[in-house]
Design a binder for these strands. Structure first.
Lengths: 121, 121
DNA sequence: TAACCATATGTCATATTCGACATATGTCAA
DNA sequence: TTGACATATGTCGAATATGACATATGGTTA
């Protein structure tokens, strides 16, 4: 991480330890966000595959349509727990959830480029 | 639902009211609890492997010793998010976290018996 | 156009989770 | 015994996540 960013955060009142320590936390936060986004996409995909509305999924998990919408857009206000509960409520297995949590998304663009490069070479 | 399951959950610190109440726990909720317990055990295992105290882990994740203790005992008041954040902060990979989330615990005794049976047969 | 349905967004009162603190328990060495 | 250290538990005010509601947006059909 850049020193300038650290300075900025410190100026804003954030207590930052060593740069290395901060890096670890930053990575953890980023991974958490990525996990949530991945889970959110799966919620939407599963719901659409089952051809049910957000309203119906909401009822299934004891929530409301608006919260389901927030879930699927990985809104800041949604917890990991609710995301996972939603998947499980739609019939996902622990293994499926674990797979989503544990799998980093690969960029399709990057993959395409790599493939092209191989063909060319 | 089997009484053995109830016992298991209670042993893990999840106080369950009446049996009838427990019966109303959905499969999804039970899976969620099991995931939390598995993650909690991993937090403790990783911390001990790194030979650091709860106090130090607390500082690493910006929390307190008491909360880390609650984390490791899978207290009701701890979120999935904090459990995962703790693992990531100690250097766990997404793949590792995913593996814990997605893997149901199998009884060693049961496994041993199965193996023995195979040998015998 | 209008009416309808699905989804997104903003707000709010309540519920849950948070860090922090006090304190209890347990272990080990002086 | 005492004291120091690690961990567990109970509580509390603050922070965050919740369901619910109103409403906006976008697509489809009459």
């Amino acid at each position: 991480m850049k020193a300038s960013k650290k300075k900025k955060l410190e100026a804003a009142g954030w207590k930052v330890g060593s740069a290395a320590e901060f890096l670890e936390l930053s990575d953890a936060e980023e991974m958490l966000v990525n996990m949530k986004v991945a889970l959110a996409k799966k919620v939407k995909a599963m719901r659409q595959e089952k051809k049910i509305t957000q309203q119906r999924l909401a009822k299934l998990i004891g929530s409301s349509q608006s919260r389901v919408a927030k879930l699927e857009t990985a809104d800041r206000s949604v917890s990991m727990e609710l995301l996972i509960r939603s998947l499980l409520s739609m019939g996902a297995t622990r293994a499926q959830v674990g797979s989503i949590v544990g799998t980093r998304k690969t960029k399709k663009v990057a993959k395409a480029k790599k493939k092209k490069a191989l063909v060319k070479g």
